[in-house]
Design a protein around this nucleic acid. Structure first.
Lengths: 202, 202
DNA sequence: ACCTGAACACCGTTCAAGT
DNA sequence: ACCTGAACACCGTTCAAGT
């Protein structure tokens, strides 16, 4: 359907790594899980099935890179969500929780991949760093809330873990179809977040 | 190492389905994820690689059955944990949360499999039923707590979702190595559960 | 009723060889 | 510096045939 830019596809693709990543991201969004094959990616990119190995040592490395990209995107989404309103920590927490869950539900396979140790392999360290970087957004809201006397001054780590676990749990359970309205009430997610907030507030 | 019971292994194995499930459970506990192969299971069971197909239509069906078994075990663990003490709902909630997280950390691959839609396929319905059956244990504690005037009388669904999401989130993040003491404090899990409880209590 | 052996259509990964 | 083609050692799954 789309006409190639070059009249003859050159031997050297030029930007294959980008294309591989983009294709993989698309396949991630098109189906459940990350069972897509490297060979299928190569087919869609119109290169030989061995070509991807010039850019990634193996499939796990590609998956790890996709996970990194996901955490960066999540951090950006969270940052944007709290920036939109120069509001109270409570409002910020609600907004960022919403953004977090929305990210997960919009990209379920990608989200699950981000937290899957499969994606680890060699690059687990970087992965955890990026995860913590997204996590830090939530943590900072809590810190501000404590400083402003809105949240209880309990150890920050515990509160932060509670928030992260709550949004992660809600996101995962929703993705896996276990928080459906028929099962668990129409707005269980909002209610759950309210419960969390009541535990945090003075 | 172990001597077979029969002097000559008979053509008909007799209890192959059980052996397949047990072998799969063992492999699940021996490595990350469920990338084990049906052929390897057949090898360990000393049958042909086609034999498992007489008992499971495909690999996903086997995985689904493993997930069912997991939810049943989890429900049992939860039930036992609250039965040990004829205690207050608060103590029961803490005990069951502990049992829940311990289950996940003791069987990380199995736990993740239980919540993985991969395992769904045809039997998603039964799976969700079993999941809800485990979930009901938590829900009942909350119900009692409300009746006894210990927990806020907010809609039960929201409170239950908050509890499940909290323990599920803590379990998953721990499994994935994101709640390590170095990262997030020594007893972030206990602290997170305390935050949850403070949101529930009157 | 349950199991085997051969066969099919795939994978991931490697490597010498091409441009 | 980047890509290809053939090759290897696997899979999951099927099916006619055996016991």
């Amino acid at each position: 359907m789309t006409e190639p830019n070059e009249t003859r596809r050159p031997y050297h693709h030029g930007d294959l790594k980008r294309v591989i990543i983009d294709t993989a991201l698309k396949m991630l969004s098109e189906s459940n899980g990350w069972q897509f094959t490297l060979r299928e990616i190569a087919r869609r990119a119109e290169v030989s099935h061995a070509a991807p190995y010039k850019h990634f040592p193996d499939k796990d490395s590609l998956l790890a890179e996709l996970a990194l990209i996901g955490f960066d995107k999540l951090r950006d989404d969270l940052t944007i969500s709290i920036g939109l309103l120069a509001a109270s920590p409570i409002e910020q927490l609600i907004a960022s929780a919403g953004a977090y869950i929305r990210f997960g539900l919009a990209n379920p396979s990608h989200y699950k991949l981000m937290f899957s140790a499969d994606a680890g392999g060699a690059g687990v360290v970087h992965l955890n760093e990026r995860a913590m970087s997204a996590f830090a957004v939530l943590r900072d809201i809590l810190k501000r809330g404590q400083n402003e006397g809105i949240f209880k001054k309990h150890p920050l780590e515990g509160q932060a873990a509670a928030c992260w676990a709550q949004v992660h749990g809600l996101t995962m359970l929703s993705i896996d179809g276990l928080l459906l309205p028929e099962k668990v009430g129409a707005n269980a997610i909002e209610a759950a977040l309210r419960t969390l907030l009541e535990g945090l507030q003075k």
